[in-house]
């Protein structure tokens, strides 16, 4: 037997079982994945309900209207529970107890207007964000302000002492000077732009959306400038629940439910 043939034989003896093993592994993995994806919800949620931790102290996410618990997060939880085919069960928590409740299994999910926190990813698995609560620049349509680079020489209205105030001070270190007009409330800053007393306002997106609902005739330009992703948290160890949640949330995005809920509350 010559050397080349011998080498080919050895290669075949090594590669053939490896390839066969790979095919077997992929087949089994695919089967498990398929079965897992179609696992009955009762196996994923053994309490036969979606136990949702909410913080009722943060309107418009969750709050009491009289005796009724209402808000964006409440509607979202109900929509998700319906998509999963189980009832929603609300567990009222303060911020301090949210992640502890998730950790000890008191709740399946947290839907509490929470921002994705990189420091919590060891415990929590976050869904795709359903809202960006970051800062936005608003100007009149003709104002032409859509970034900090458009601001030099212009007037920027904002709420005194807010995140927007801190951000504007950072911008002042990066671009040529502009004038900051601090107001006691964010709505005053938006009024200033609408009435032509400022060129742009910097406010958080929830304030902006609520203001624009109240002033539907105002022709404006709205530009997101920072990102604060608001998402749903499930336990990092409950991968099946997380995957089921992702699928349900995706279907709510696709059929327009999320947009409808955002329009309802913001």
């Amino acid at each position: 037997m010559n050397a080349r043939l011998q080498a080919r034989l050895i290669a075949l003896m090594v590669l053939a079982p490896a390839a066969a093993g790979l095919v077997c592994f992929l087949s089994v993995w695919g089967l498990v994945w398929h079965l897992d994806r179609h696992r009955p919800i009762s196996e994923i949620l053994p309490h036969a309900a979606l136990r949702v931790g909410v913080d009722p102290a943060h309107p418009p996410f969750a709050f009491y209207l009289g005796d009724a618990l209402v808000g964006l997060d409440i509607d979202l939880a109900n929509a998700l529970a319906e998509a999963l085919g189980v009832p929603a069960q609300f567990v009222l928590l303060g911020y301090d107890g949210l992640y502890d409740a998730l950790k000890i299994g008191q709740v399946d999910l947290l839907i509490a207007g929470i921002a994705i926190d990189p420091a919590r990813t060891g415990l929590a698995r976050y869904s795709a964000p359903y809202l960006n609560a970051g800062l936005m620049l608003i100007s009149s349509e003709s104002g032409g302000v859509s970034s900090m680079h458009d601001l030099p020489g212009k007037r920027l209205a904002l709420e005194f002492g807010s995140e927007a105030n801190a951000e504007a001070r950072r911008w002042l270190r990066r671009v040529l000077p502009f004038t900051i007009l601090p107001y006691a409330q964010p709505n005053h800053a938006l009024d200033a732009v609408r009435l032509g007393m400022a060129d742009a306002a910097l406010v958080d997106s929830i304030t902006a959306r609520l203001y624009l609902r109240a002033h539907p005739d105002w022709v404006h330009r709205l530009t997101p400038v920072t990102v604060l992703p608001i998402a749903i948290a499930s336990h990092a160890d409950h991968a099946r629940l997380g995957a089921a949640l992702d699928r349900a949330l995706e279907s709510l995005f696709r059929d327009g439910t999320i947009d409808r809920l955002l329009d309802k509350w913001l």
Partner: peptide, 15 residues
């Protein structure tokens, strides 16, 4: 002075 917490005030009020 959180913008949305029910136990908060505005930053101006806080100062």
């Amino acid at each position: 002075d959180h913008p949305r917490w029910v136990n908060a005030v505005t930053p101006a009020q806080r100062v």
